[in-house]
Design a binder for these strands. Structure first.
Lengths: 159, 159
DNA sequence: GCTTGTTAGTTACAAATTCAACGGTTACCT
DNA sequence: AGGTAACCGTTGAATTTGTAACTAACAAGC
């Protein structure tokens, strides 16, 4: 039949355009644009996605606790707990219990962690530039702004 | 210390702006914007992400094989295999071996599958509109175009 | 003091994803 | 034909994630 004859990636079929559905489209773009970066932190440092995120949070913001990272990155406690454990094993960070409240562990990068962070940060900068180069300069601005708005979530759940 | 004092979500620290790093930002936006839709297909149909995707591909493009879906959606074989198995169990789709080449299985929605698809499609449309409503109309256009370009991937890997 | 409740972080178990190998079918090559 | 290679789809084992119960530390009320 003539149902799926379009050579390109997608607007045939019935009325729904999957390639324009934001949750789907965002996911495809996120997936695709993570690939090359992923390859670096995986193959060069044996890290997982959760791990480079924790690394970056500490590299950027300095000493913080696991919960603070979780709040900023919207990552679940357990993910962070495991990422921290692995990063500690590999001596990328160290923990210190806070003496005024011994429930908190303050996390901090070691020298090795700092070094890894700085290298990955450079990779990230270069890579981000390469991604942005696929877009028109003003397009890029609009994109980042729109994404931040979407990432922020709905303020009001419609009355 | 004065290292992480910014009340809002992000630009303190050293020079790197994580909230603007596209792979990270895209992921946050994708995650956030999937939540409400996820809730519907999960709680109303007990589906997984892979499953609604397969369902939509069949609903939109009609009969296709698993590999064709994989190519369009950039989903791995095994994910699709398992999604198809679960959708079949629940009688949302049926398979037919192609007689001219018995390696292929043509997948097709059942009546129940069609019904589920149509309902979810409506949810998707409404939801997409609600997401887009957070953006300025022209912003929205630029966003979708930019995302499609990013999702398409790099044409040349730089010589 | 001694409950009760809350918060920080871990761990155990189940669910989902990835990776590698497999069976069955067709295509190619001599 | 016979052998090898390629392709479609599945399966089992290893990773990774998610969910829920847990320990430890503090805080508040009584």
């Amino acid at each position: 039949m003539s149902k799926s004859d379009d050579p390109d990636g997608g607007r045939a079929g019935d009325g729904f355009d999957l390639q324009s559905f934001l949750p789907y489209l965002l996911n495809q773009a996120a997936e695709e644009s993570s690939l090359a970066f992923q390859q670096v932190y995986r193959e060069r440092y044996g890290m997982l996605r959760t791990e480079w995120r924790v690394l970056f949070h500490l590299g950027i913001y300095g000493r913080m606790t696991a919960t603070e990272i979780g709040a900023r990155a919207k990552m679940h406690k357990t993910k962070i707990s495991r990422a921290v454990a692995r990063l500690e094993e590999r001596r990328f960070l160290k923990r210190t219990r806070r003496e005024d409240d011994r429930r908190h562990e303050v996390l901090e990068l070691t020298t090795a962690g700092e070094a890894a962070y700085r290298e990955l940060r450079q990779v990230a900068r270069d890579y981000d530039a390469r991604l942005a180069a696929r877009l028109a300069p003003e397009e890029e601005q609009v994109l980042r702004r729109a994404l931040r708005r979407l990432a922020a979530g709905a303020a009001d759940p419609a009355p």
